[in-house]
Structure formats: structure tokens, C-alpha cells
Amino acid sequence: MPKLSYAKALNRALSDEMARDPSVFVMGEDIHLALTQTTTGLLDRFGPQRVVQTPLSEQGFTNFATGAAMAGRRPVVEYQIPFLLLLVIEQIANQANKFALMSGGQTRVPVTYLLPGTGWRPGWGAQHSDQPYSVFAHLGVKTVIPATPTDAYGLLTTAIRDDDPVMVFAPMPALGIREDVDYADLAPIPLGVGLVRRAGTDVTVVAVGHLVHDALAVAEELAGEVSVEVFDPRSLYPFDWAGLAASLERTGRLVVFDDSNRSCGLAGEILATAAEEMRLDAAPKRVTRPDGAVVIGCAPGLDLAVQPSRAQLTNAIRAVLKS
């Protein structure tokens, strides 16, 4: 079976959707030379009208995509660096995401916002390593974060076909992951459907994005001591609450492993919902980024000290088992 990398899966999904549907086009910075590899080969295949290279004008081209979408296109907008999302929150959450509502259903805005490289970049400093997916889930923008190449293909495909704005976060640490795949098995994955990556009976670990792989490694390390179930939500908004409830029915214990800042982050929402609505036999725990600045500076060692880690997850799992 061929090996498919995460980055190549994004490229393949985009290419397949552009071939399937002439209304799909991609726009962003440096995409003619495929700086992020997402658009490799697309300019030659589809031409500059469908591979639209933009100036450094994020607010302008984000709104531009909204207009193109209302005129019947399906734009995929790429942002090289996650902090650029902070510049266009208004254009995504207050413009694109509200036109269906404000028009009483007369229009739709099927834009995909693709972030091929979110989260920590070693040594890149305070402004290049954000992971703001909780912000968009909070604002009600559909948000997915695939952990594997197969899911990267399937969720990007679904995002492009969806009639609403969808954020696709591709975590930097996951981009190099490779997976044996049969190309015939690559298919759209519905929003709001999580996946039990590893079945277990003692504790459910909800792991987000690239942290799924760390959670699986910890589960394997602890296999002789505790049976860990790893639940990958894949889609953060909508969230597969029924899938989580089913997992907690089996285990009754919960740890959330989330690359968000602690205050008002996704992990807090998962703990709160589980506490209100689901079986919990012990107080749950979360392992997240700290409050406040998520990256300290340009010293990789300094940054690593504040990233959610396997050691922290191991400790949290042991703690919820004791209580």
C-alpha cells in the first residue's frame, strides 16, 4: 500500500475537489509556488483563475472569498500562519458566518479556511505558534482538526462540500505523519463524528489533533497498568457529544488532552458538558497549554516547558484513576 503524508493528503483532497467541481478555487499567499505544499501542482493543472495568488491583504481577500461564495463559488482560503486568523476573525465570524442567518436563508457562504501548520513551531517566537481553534468553536464557526492523513483528506473534502464556512486546522506537528492508505478508501468524513482510536475500559482520553498520537503512545506505555480509551473528536464544532457519552458510559473517567490555552479553551467545554450530562465516576482532568501567552519566546526549551506533554497526560490519567 502507498504511504500518504498528511500534507500530501491535503493537496490530494484539494486537487480532487477542484477536478470534481469547477466552482472550487483556492486563494492565498505564495500558493503558486506552494510554500506550504498544499497547492503543489495545482497552478499547472487548473490555471491562475482557480489558483489565485493574493497580496498580503488578509482582511481584503477573506471578505473577497465571502463575496465569491455568495456568487456561487466554493473558495478555499489558505493562511500560512495561524496568527493571521486573529486578523480576520471579524471577516469570518461576523461576515461569512452570518450571511445565511441575516439573509433569512436566501444565501450561503461555502468557504473553507485552511490552516496548514497550526500550533507550536520550535523557536519561531511568540507570534507564529498559536492554536486558536477554541476561539472559532466558541464563535460558532464549524471547526475541524484532523489527526491523520486519511482524516485530513476526508475532513477537508467535507469542508469544501459543506454549505457553511468551515475552519480546517492542520497541526504543524502532524504534517509529516505518514500512513499506509489504499487511495480507493479515501472518502469524505462527516462533521461531528468522532472516532475511538483505541478502545479501553478504565479511562477516556479525549485527544485533539496531533495530540491524538501522543495520547496513543501514552496509552500503549500504560497498557500493563490501565486500559485507556482514546477518543478523537476530529470535529470540534459540531462536536460528537453522543460519541463522548458512549465512551464515558464504558469508562466513567475522563481526561482531556487539548492544545488550547486553559481559560475558556475547548477542554473546559468538554469537562463542563461531561459533568452536566454524562456518566463520571471521578472528577475529570484536563491537560492544556497554560493561561496567557502560549509560547514564551524563541528558545525551544522554554517553549517546550509550557506545551501539553505526554508526562502531564500520564500523571493526569493516574490521578483520575485514584479518585
Binding site: 471578505n63 463575496g67 455568495m70 456568487a71 461576515q95 441575516m102 439573509s103
Partner: peptide, 22 residues
């Protein structure tokens, strides 16, 4: 009429995107 943005000045780029597409 494709809508009225409440964010002053920000509707113009939406209009440009509509125009590009049509």
C-alpha cells in the same frame, strides 16, 4: 441585493469578490 455589512467599509471587498466571480 447581496446584503449590507454592518462593519463600515468592509462590504467593499465582499462586493469585489462577487464582481470577480460573476
Amino acid at each position: 441585493v447581496y446584503g449590507a455589512s454592518g462593519t463600515v467599509g468592509h462590504g467593499a471587498a465582499i462586493a469585489a469578490g462577487v464582481a470577480w466571480a460573476v
